[in-house]
């Protein structure tokens, strides 16, 4: 653009660019160091931190664009105001029409930005343990040891202890209108409380007993639809103590709005203490629960029926419905 313009206009353009660079660098640095660490959803889990990084990267790229537009508008308003005496001709005015250098530069810059963002987004999705989203019954991405932990959970031989670095499978069971959670490595007890150990890879196995719900733990950045007869698996790794909120994010009926609970990430020792205590306290009821399975078939009679395992024996296998067995 500059060579076709007069010397005075070239100075305007350069001045705009210099101001833009300075403002952008300052704004990006301020955002990155002051705001970035506080951008939701926080850093409670690996997937949350990944999301925060994505937001921050997008913002750091977007800020210069925003500043450029605003700066140009402000510069034009002050310097190229038609009411101003001896106002110079504006940069980017009619003389820029058909300027190939301007057009090519614009296309290249915007294309590079968009393609880089697309590549960044894809790379961020293909991380070791997914991006916290439900990956269906056959996850493509999973953390080391997940398959072994899930297989052992189903067989009732899973173990977890502090510092073991084992993946902890947790089953999320949605029903109108509450989530309950089963811990297969602790005898398969079921609880309305979601307690997780810190510094641990979690395998959420999400299913439903009735209609479609969606398990959304915002601060964990885990979101997986809960479908009846489906095991929707999502992974994350906890890395910070604290409370988080679980909400249903799929309109599921009268009390959908009240279908939420609070969960907590606690130390590994505290988790083990809670899990073993709850396992003991719930033992009388756990024996009446169906054997742990990835999905449960509601009673064929519909109302008030039992819930029964579908008989799957391996994780991530297609769901096989054996029909509703009536209690003997």
């Amino acid at each position: 653009m500059a060579p076709e313009t007069t010397q005075g206009e070239t100075n305007h353009f350069r001045r705009i660019v210099y101001i833009w660079i300075a403002l952008s660098v300052v704004a990006d640095l301020l955002f990155w160091f002051l705001v970035g660490p506080h951008v939701p959803p926080g850093r409670m889990t690996s997937s949350a931190q990944g999301d925060q990084l994505d937001f921050n990267i997008l913002f750091v790229i977007g800020l210069p664009v925003l500043i450029g537009v605003w700066e140009w508008l402000a510069y034009a308003a002050f310097n190229w105001n038609a009411k101003k005496k001896d106002a110079p001709e504006s940069v980017g005015g009619p003389k820029a029409w058909g300027n190939k250098r301007t057009e090519v530069s614009w296309i290249i810059v915007t294309s590079v930005v968009v393609v880089c963002l697309a590549c960044f987004g894809i790379v961020e999705l293909v991380v070791l343990q997914g991006a916290g989203g439900g990956e269906g019954p056959n996850p493509i991405w999973y953390p080391h040891g997940a398959i072994q932990a899930e297989t052992a959970a189903l067989a009732g031989t899973g173990t977890w202890s502090p510092n073991s670095n084992d993946v902890l499978p947790v089953q999320v069971i949605a029903q109108q209108w509450k989530f309950t959670y089963r811990y297969p490595t602790f005898g398969g007890f079921e609880s309305p409380e979601l307690i997780l150990p810190d510094d641990t890879s979690i395998a959420f196995n999400v299913t439903s007993l009735d209609v479609i719900h969606s398990f959304w733990a915002y601060q964990l950045e885990v979101k997986a639809d809960a479908n009846p007869l489906e095991n929707n698996v999502a992974f994350t790794r906890t890395q910070q103590l604290g409370n988080f909120v679980v909400r249903c994010s799929e309109l599921c009926g009268l009390w959908h709005g009240a279908m939420f609970n609070y969960g907590t990430v606690v130390s590994q020792a505290a988790f083990e203490k809670w899990a073993t205590a709850t396992e003991a306290a719930n033992a009388a009821n756990t024996k009446d629960l169906p054997p742990f399975a990835w999905t449960y078939v509601p009673d064929a009679n519909g109302a008030a029926g039992g819930y029964y395992p579908d008989g799957n024996v391996t994780p991530y296998s297609p769901v096989e419905i054996y029909g509703a067995k009536q209690p003997s």
Binding site: A284, N285, A304, G306, Y307
Partner: peptide
């Protein structure tokens, strides 16, 4: 009247 629960979790007093 009653029947087996769809989720025996609710058979527990909590």
């Amino acid at each position: 009247s009653g029947s087996p629960l769809r989720n025996q979790e609710w058979g527990q007093v909590q």
